[in-house]
Design a protein around this nucleic acid. Structure first.
Lengths: 208, 208
DNA sequence: ACCTGAACACCGTTCAAGT
DNA sequence: ACCTGAACACCGTTCAAGT
């Protein structure tokens, strides 16, 4: 009985030692995916990980910190998805459109996670925090893509920051409206993103 | 003492009779403005209105319904603000840009209220609900403005729905990013909205 | 009809105590 | 160091009872 109650050697130590923080984040991501942010409770997370209700206070000061870690993790895979779309579509005009569509696709595939990243649950104030850095690095992918196109004469030469902010806002807005189910027309979110990127392209061409 | 404890004639009846629903919504709007959505509790709202904790269940099935009523009220004044900007700026190209800026201004002035309207707290599923109607009516202002400009040859003739959705998403995205404090550059939200409307204009001109 | 008080089933968080 | 159990101060919601 003593043996059968231990599924793996040192399972107990494995749970409680070192990787509880990571296990907590992974568990939270899964719970949020299945039941939304409001479905995440510290007590439930502790129970899922066979750990005391208060164990996670050793790794996070409070629930907000856990959510911030979840959002940070989200921004990192988000950045990877944007970069992959940009590169695998050959950069340039096509890659840029692909990146816009990948943006919306990420949000549609991970709606709850995306909401944690952008839903205003976090302070997002501490400019030094890991979260802010991860968010800025995702934004940087867009900024770099614009600068590269400007260098190639594909986008008119001007301050890339407001350009990037405008485009970010457009795809972010599409993502949010789609997630909220507020786009009633026939189009999917990705189709609308394609449409938007085409219109944006017309508005930022060098000749325009 | 009996008299001094009654600030107004029939104050008690006034509180509890007929207008409790409206008083509850107004109180919730104020609380949300001051302390955010998470600061709104039914118990606190009841206490503020000198009413029992459970009194409001006579007027709303649950807390979600109260928030939906708050959002509905928000969409109505939102619609009025958009329409006022469109009309007082002389419609056409100028009015359209003014409407975009008014959109972001509303969100900046009423961030918490705006978040309730778009934050995903509500189901927004029931297409028949008052909330959906109020939201659709606000969207309709944008749709009408586009159609009017198309009739005047100011916007290329094509299906106005994706056009409206794209523009809605752009200003919505700006509003959300500004509210979340995620736009670090020098520009204010309204300035970015002006920039965006100019770029959007270039992309939807008949000649483009 | 509308309102009330007590109670239920949850939360996040703290804290003294264990190993 | 890391974890635990009990306790505290909150929630939303229900329900029998009052007028």
């Amino acid at each position: 009985m003593a043996v059968s109650s231990r599924p793996q050697r040192k399972a107990r130590d494995a749970y409680h030692h070192g990787n509880l923080r990571e296990a907590l984040i992974a568990q939270a991501v899964q719970t949020i995916r299945k039941h939304g942010v409001e479905g995440l409770t510290l007590r439930g997370a502790g129970a899922d990980l066979r750990v005391s209700r208060t164990a996670l206070y050793r790794h996070f000061p409070d629930k907000h910190a856990l959510l911030a870690a979840v959002a940070t993790e989200g921004f990192r895979s988000f950045r990877a998805a944007l970069l992959a779309a940009w590169e695998s579509a050959g950069r340039g005009r096509e890659g840029f459109a692909a990146m816009g569509m990948a943006y919306v696709r990420f949000a549609v595939i991970n709606p709850s996670h995306y909401r944690v990243m952008f839903g205003g649950f976090l302070d997002s104030a501490g400019t030094e925090s890991e979260l802010s850095v991860a968010g800025a690095e995702a934004f940087q992918v867009l900024l770099d893509a614009i600068a590269e196109q400007q260098a190639q004469g594909l986008i008119r030469a001007e301050d890339p920051l407001p350009l990037a902010q405008y485009i970010w806002a457009a795809v972010h807005g599409i993502a949010m409206l789609v997630i909220d189910g507020r786009l009633q027309g026939a189009q999917t979110g990705e189709e609308l993103a394609r449409f938007a990127m085409a219109r944006i392209r017309t508005g930022i061409d060098p000749g325009a």
